[in-house]
Design a protein around this nucleic acid. Structure first.
Lengths: 235, 235
DNA sequence: GAGTGGTCTAGACCACATT
DNA sequence: ATGTGGTCTAGACCACTCA
């Protein structure tokens, strides 16, 4: 569902990319945006907050909202979790499926996913590439309770888009843990690295808007090809 | 500056920790909190958002605001950047100073910190431990323009608290990049690891509320003792 | 002093969960 | 049908920047 704030953020972003503010590097004032779009200050501030969280602008009290320089390298956003395909919409994303099977949760997975032991779970193992570089080796589990059907065609594309648009699931939040991991022989071969090499490891637990966990995953990232970006608030 | 929202978040957190809601695992409704504290809905929702961002509660439309289980391990928050000492207020934090010197920026640092070459910069190298475990080897730079004085006594404690409370600086946001790094002989020795070992590397660029960069840093984290946590929105 | 973003209030309507 | 959180509006006052 697109709110007014999100739509406004998209429009402002468009104007930034068109270079409309490149002379002063400042957005119009809040009052001007209210005027231009016929919306309330709440919406304008919400849209600016979306852009600020993405590191595209920063507001300074008393001065205005400044457009930030675009970061040069390729970074993956740390604070978003809308799926690989969405988060890297501007890049060429591919997924090579290593495994797609309906399995029963073992004790460990059942504990993590807060489901019954022997509950049915889709297990999906994929190699992900961005702009033709191998980025990550991902193992993901989806509770069949929420995802009745899954196949290779879906898993090759945007699995999250399928869940949202076709199954009607609405997402809430994702718990994310970042730590060091180590490659086994399969992940090393696929990432063009060596067994035992280090990898940045991200464990995600993804919840629906109603607070139910529906997806857990474990991703090992290529130590040269992947780096992450986030902007942290200091208030 | 403590806003009403932050004060309210602290009070609600206190009640959670006292176990007041442990029967239903739900906070009072927004209307009840408005009633209990005599504040507006804006404040109540702001306070809940603060707790939700920290992973302590999650709101479900139509149902209420649920208290989450406390995470078991020790994680460092990824989305906060208020300094080590603050972010781990509940832990025993120590900093061993390896170097504290007033130096001139070289070309590389000047570019990163957007200052003149030869600008004066405090260079602070510290080993940080949490609960007596070596956690990270940190190299930080502070522009003398904003930090006229610095000494070992300050750097051993909470440098950020000094900047905020004594120098009156007000912080804005921090750009953060996470990637893989590798230990040199000094950092390896201090972290009780080996030269060439991998480390999670975090590069921070910290900005004041007026958008001026005042601090850059480079931290190498112990691959066993450090892990990070964040909760990502999926809207 | 004029103009900017930050916090706060009061009130309306909407989307969703539960009874 | 009721109650919950989510979005949106209008308006006030405050903190800060800059001429």
């Amino acid at each position: 569902m697109a709110t007014k704030q999100h739509e406004l953020a998209v429009q402002i972003r468009q104007r930034i990319e068109n270079g409309e503010f490149s002379d002063t590097n400042r957005l119009p004032t809040e009052d001007q945006l209210i005027e231009q779009y016929g919306v309330s200050r709440y919406c304008v501030r919400g849209a600016v907050a979306i852009l600020a969280e993405a590191g595209e602008v920063f507001p300074v009290r008393g001065s205005g909202v400044f457009v930030r320089e675009r970061r040069s390298g390729n970074y993956m956003p740390m604070s978003a979790a809308n799926g690989f395909t969405f988060d890297f919409a501007k890049h060429k994303v591919t997924s090579t499926i290593q495994e797609l099977a309906l399995v029963r949760a073992d004790a460990q997975l059942a504990k993590r996913m807060k489901c019954d032991e022997d509950a049915q779970v889709w297990r999906v193992v994929r190699l992900r590439t961005v702009d033709d570089l191998p980025i990550s080796f991902e193992t993901a589990w989806y509770l069949k309770e929420f995802v009745p059907m899954l196949n290779e065609s879906i898993a090759k594309g945007s699995l999250y888009a399928y869940l949202r648009d076709d199954l009607g699931l609405s997402f809430g939040f994702t718990d994310r843990v970042i730590r060091m991991g180590w490659l086994d022989s399969l992940s090393a071969r696929l990432l063009h690295l060596h067994e035992g090499d280090p990898a940045i490891c991200i464990e995600d637990d993804a919840f629906l808007a109603n607070g139910r966990l529906f997806n857990a995953s474990h991703s090992l990232y290529h130590y040269n090809n992947a780096q992450f970006y986030s902007v942290a608030s200091m208030r």
